[in-house]
Write a protein that binds this DNA or RNA. Structure first.
Lengths: 223, 223, 223, 223
DNA sequence: AATGAATGAGAGTTCATTCAT
DNA sequence: TATGAATGAACTCTCATTCAT
């Protein structure tokens, strides 16, 4: 049960994702900057990176075109900030959601629920991040890696505690993340619903509980 | 164990994915068309949909710009044909790979191996298809749906035969596809390797075998 | 009452308006040529010279693109043939219509009626000919000049016979033609009607009868 | 002598003739906009709508291509503005010219003279407006309708005053406009002269005076 | 006599970015 | 700090015409 070697995916800490051309010194500047960042998130989510234009973003933010370049170096610059922003917010949402759990399986259930809630409220998460594949691969990797990086220690602990079956926690973490992402894509985004149908959610949890090898698999045949 | 209702994801048959402005009437035309389609696949995979230009595609195909429009209606038109083409080819690769399996778990192992092989040989698969999210949502959905649609009957059979644990086959299929996609992305594309490291593959199969609820889970604690 | 000097508007006889690249030797070729010419008239009338394309014309004629150049030298070539064709047909229609008249005013009434009828049946007349202004000025001039040239002798005769008041017949002819064209444009084409409303027609004839200085102006105060 | 019903030619007020993408906010912008508009008029008059290109217009205006789109939405947009501009200017020229007249016939003489003068100085009037037939029918109609709309009340007054013979003023106005347009086309534009030959002008006035049914037709046989 | 394939210049338009105020 | 003006390269797509069969 040796762990697979960690792949050379670069530093785990956040790379310098470009961004601010200047850090605003005054409160007013800070507000303007925030307006633009929010507008950018909306626009990227609505039309995607390529069809988002500086004009659209600045119009949405209600500032002049030139103002954009006071706060961001380039279109790519804002994009990376938007990704970093979303990344922090999903992670926060998930950890908040699972905080009250008393065992791993419950933590998963709560964490997934939190993730889906966030997804429904911020479709930008998918729409923006999936774009990152070509637009800014390093931003994409950083996004996934921080999520997985948060996940692994918990899985490792649970294995140590005998709560779940031993497996490479990296492979397990990526697999779980994959499922969350796909189910969210399929049943929230495509269906334009605000939640995954309960029946689907339940079945997903059955699958996940089996994956984890939880001793008392509530639906499986083991134990 | 009732199945979740099938989501209204549209017709299963392939939608009219745009495409040919004219179907070639002579052998020479057919060759030219193929040259352009192949060039398009390369270019899309190399630089993505948006940075791919008709100039780049026609240069790669060694034809004049105008010639492009003899065979394809638009840039989006070729894109959709490329997606449809890749879709058929992965599905073929996977079904060929798993043909010789004698049980479901083996079929999964062979199918996943086939999928990863195809992925390594045709990075275009990911690079092109992930773009489809914004470029042509219907092409994307059609892609996933045909894959899942192929998958489900096999899972259902295996459940009926008691080979794997009962679950909603839809949810299970999407979950399995998610894992394959993510592991391929993480260990083949990001690492720029031609295969998933065997240790990772094995661990992934452990996870999958648990998910399926195979009676003799070779590594888990059940059975 | 001397006549104004004839302006140097070029030869009155038809200039060589380009056209046939080859004269077809056989009946089949003649039929193909006619098909293309008719299609061209339709297409020019429908979308104008510039938006008419060889593709559209050949599609409408149900022949291959290359075939076009067997019978016409260029797009401009067909255009000029179409104009010449229409020119002959209107003039024929007008002279036929006025043939039975017993005096000038009646001839005018019948001629105008014939012109409007032709206009209603062949909107191409206007739509094609007005385009000629920029596309082929010489075709346009030839068109107007043949019409005026036909007109003048009749006016001159009528003046000699004391049927209408003496005036420069050239100025009179152009004025009459102007009125016909404008009324047709305004009440047939813009209204998309098949005839000028009778009340308008009558009023127009009142105006015309005054212009001509017909002794027994049926509505004026002279006589 | 009832008037023919007014045809349903749409609102009399100027339609939104497209145009500015942004109205300039600073004096410099206003100057640039004007430069482009003037250049466009020249280019349209010189080569016609279709052969006019944004490149030609911006080169003539000595600005970059992109600048064009700061002030106009499209090529059609400037075209419509040019038409509207010319429309206002001819109407102004004509009303100025006839201001000092003491009777209808004199007003006509002065008005026509003013019109021909404008025509000679701004050949763009014809060349641009005749193009409008296909390019922007609504601009064309608006042009004619405003001219006729200005004309009619004067004719009506003159009829009421017994200055001219009663007729439908609409038909009369269109007929007069037709004559002006045609004579200008024939003797100014085709001849490339700066005025209608005096002999032609006089004859035209004879015709017009008869049309109007002026009691003391100075050249006719009545009275 | 007729076809379909191929061409390539040129069109209108967009847009990230820079600059002067 | 903020603005609006300006840029020009690049894009997708059209089309009259020529050519080989």
């Amino acid at each position: 049960m040796s762990e697979t070697p960690s792949a050379p995916t670069g530093a785990v800490g956040p790379p310098d994702l470009g961004g601010a051309a200047t850090s605003p010194r005054r409160a007013k500047g800070e507000r303007t900057r925030r307006k633009i960042l929010d507008a950018a998130e909306q626009v990227f989510a609505a039309v995607g990176y390529h069809d988002a234009s500086i004009v659209k973003i600045t119009e949405a933010a209600d500032v002049a075109q030139g103002t954009f370049y006071l706060y961001f170096q380039s279109k790519l610059g804002v994009f990376e900030e938007v990704v970093a922003d979303l990344n922090q917010r999903v992670r926060h949402a998930m950890s908040e959601a699972s905080r009250s759990a008393t065992n791993r399986l419950e933590a998963e259930r709560l964490g997934f629920a939190g993730f889906f809630r966030f997804t429904a409220e911020h479709p930008a998460l998918y729409r923006v991040i999936r774009q990152a594949e070509f637009v800014s691969p390093r931003a994409l990797r950083h996004h996934y890696e921080t999520i997985i990086g948060n996940y692994v220690p918990y899985l490792r602990e649970a294995m140590a505690a005998g709560e779940i079956a031993p497996t490479d926690p990296m492979v397990l973490a990526w697999s779980l993340a994959a499922i969350g992402e796909m189910i969210g894509l399929r049943w929230i985004l495509w269906n334009e619903e605000h939640e995954v149908p309960p029946a689907v959610f339940d079945q997903m949890m059955v699958v996940i509980s089996r994956m984890l090898g939880v001793p008392r698999d509530p639906d499986g045949r083991s134990a």
